[in-house]
Design a protein around this nucleic acid. Structure first.
Lengths: 212, 212
DNA sequence: ATATGTGAACCTGTTCACAGCT
DNA sequence: AGCTGTGAACAGGTTCACATAT
């Protein structure tokens, strides 16, 4: 029902807002001003108000935003009202860490399957799921009715695995493999390369240090 | 010697360029055109050329860019000519995965210390390093002369740990803890929240699915 | 002929500043 | 008085299109 599409930068900030609102709620706060919340999240108050205005979040002038109402509204926009089912492909160290990561269930993601190729890993139980062989990828996706996949394979297997995930009907992929994967326009991919992130931090850190 | 400061979006893309160039080099390619490389990385050719022009990367018209030269140039800009020392604070599943992540050494990061509070973890050896207790954080940073830290503590410990890292002289922090940390202006922080990343993917995936 | 380098146009997102509610 | 909501100004980054070099 949102008429105007949300700026993607706004979308990217919403999970952070939700996180901070959760903290406020657990502290018993009923309302919060844009100044307070912005400070908590680390954005400018104007930015926050603009973002919330896209949602049509009704803050009350002179008062602020109602914490619970805002939480519900953001959760709704982020699609958390429906359960999203998730598979993880590649149960190495990172895949294992992600499988046992508690932050997903809190965000209404349900882990429905784990897949790997390593015979030493296939058949073991991780996070309550028996790891299935990659040859069964399509069945795992279908049986679990997964719509989202986390890709933590080696770079060499990433594109091929992504192709199979797409063919199996997945509509979103979070790719940790250090290789860009190409997918059709109707599938969303988000690339997260941990090595790149570290390089970006290091670049800016060095620049800052050099300035003094 | 870079006169114009690089746009931060350009900096964020450089590691990806470098990665693809490494692939090309190992395939024996000597030169590469902006069309080829852009396609490989997943950006537009104009974008790539503009980025490289900031570096003063001398491509030859009618030919393209020299693969090895470009690699060296980007590596230099990213500060890879000097070794950067790294500590990881919080050796849970994610910290463990990052400690054993091979992608860091390739990028001229040297892991010099691991820290945790859990008595079950302190004293164990991970990735060739004995995990030290968090009370020794300052010594670990000093002994290793670390300039960069990866933060993978629980949210509750994140800010306090960041403060101590900054006081110990770290100039860059890659924060995986699901809480924004505040640092002085002369320290670089990059927030990576895996739960948020998944929510962002899911949002766009749902939007794309709904369109058909 | 082919492919780079780049000013200019364009677009997206951020900040400002103040009108408008409560 | 206090705080939101938002048009307008601004900033930053991307794309275009073509001059330029090999």
């Amino acid at each position: 029902m949102t008429v105007r599409p949300l700026p993607s930068t706004t979308v990217a900030r919403l999970p952070g807002y939700l996180r901070s609102l959760g903290g406020l709620a657990s502290e018993g706060a009923h309302t919060v001003s844009s100044d307070q919340l912005a400070d908590l999240v680390g954005v400018s108050p104007a930015q926050l108000r603009k973002d919330l205005s896209y949602l049509g979040a009704g803050g009350r002038r002179g008062v602020g935003y109602e914490v619970d109402g805002l939480r519900r509204q953001i959760a709704q926009v982020l699609g958390m009202t429906e359960e999203r089912r998730l598979v993880i492909v590649g149960i190495g160290n990172l895949g294992h860490a992600l499988a046992t990561y508690s932050g997903f269930a809190d965000r209404s993601f349900e882990l429905v399957g784990l897949v790997d190729t390593d015979p030493a890993v296939v058949g073991t139980t991780v996070a309550g799921h028996v790891v299935r062989h990659a040859s069964e990828l399509e069945q795992v996706v279908a049986e679990g009715a997964a719509t989202i996949a986390i890709l933590t394979t080696p770079a060499s297997a990433a594109q091929q695995t992504a192709d199979r995930l797409v063919a199996a009907g997945v509509s979103g992929i979070l790719n940790f493999a250090p290789r860009t994967v190409r997918v059709p326009d109707d599938v969303e991919v988000r690339e997260v390369d941990l090595g790149s992130e570290l390089q970006i931090v290091a670049f800016h850190a060095r620049r800052l240090s050099a300035e003094n």
